[in-house]
Design a protein around this nucleic acid. Structure first.
Length: 221
DNA sequence: GTTCTAGAAC
DNA sequence: GTTCTAGAAC
């Protein structure tokens, strides 16, 4: 049987080497963005951080996205989660040196629960699996669109702990329907900390800044 | 993923 | 008139 001729370069579905979707692979090699690495993962700063702290934990293995993850990658996802938790610990532990170890551990989980989100986008734009580690101040000039906001604060954001549990319990990850993901991104704006529903992005950003500047102790909502 | 900008919304 | 959103980008 005769083969169909290969489409060579003009096929837009195959990202070229310097296509924007390949940006993470470039950043992984750039000392300006690289934070740390081990034998399995590289941690970089997000080039356009959507909060005060925004890192990406990226496997060195060529895994295109979360939807290519199989049961045998479970250890990798758990490792990525541990690396992510370590990053959040680094930010706060200096402030906790004065308290006992037990209290430090408790505060660490408070920090993770209230001040950092660790997870994956349901529909990633960039090539190569990447785990977002982002502080929930969302105080950044790069946070501009409703899409940005909803990608971190709706079920479009798949929490790493949930993903790890799902893989352990079911042996596979269930992909969100694309209409469902689109719906989450188009949801009306809502504050992640209180019932406020800002009317537009500038309104949301003013509201977030009020939370951010009014936050004088770690238990203030 | 971002940038740019037309035109909608105010 | 100005602010804001949303769609094209070869």
């Amino acid at each position: 049987m005769k083969r169909k001729p290969k489409i060579i370069s003009s096929d837009a579905t195959v990202p070229k080497k310097h296509h924007w979707a390949m940006g993470l692979l470039v950043s992984m090699e750039d000392p300006q963005y690289k934070v740390k690495e081990d034998d399995k993962v590289t941690v970089i700063k997000d080039k356009y951080p959507k909060a005060q702290y925004h890192y990406l934990v990226i496997p060195k293995a060529d895994i295109p996205s979360l939807w290519h993850i199989k049961k045998e990658n479970e250890d990798l996802l758990i490792h990525m989660h541990c690396v992510a938790e370590d990053l959040t610990r680094q930010h706060k532990e200096s402030e906790f040196l004065y308290v006992s170890q037990v209290v430090t551990v408790i505060l660490f989980y408070v920090v993770i629960l209230f001040y950092f989100s660790i997870g994956y986008h349901a529909v990633p734009s960039m090539q190569r699996l990447h785990l977002h580690v982002i502080s929930t101040d969302f105080n950044s000039p790069c946070l501009k669109t409703k899409y940005h906001w909803n990608s971190f604060t709706t079920p479009f954001f798949l929490h790493s702990a949930d993903i790890c549990n799902q893989l352990r319990e079911k042996g596979e990850l269930k992909k969100l329907k694309s209409e469902e993901s689109a719906q989450h991104l188009n949801t009306a704006l809502k504050c992640h900390k209180c019932p406020t529903t800002p009317k537009n992005m500038p309104d949301l950003k003013r509201h977030l800044l009020a939370h951010f500047t009014g936050r004088n102790n770690p238990f203030d909502p």
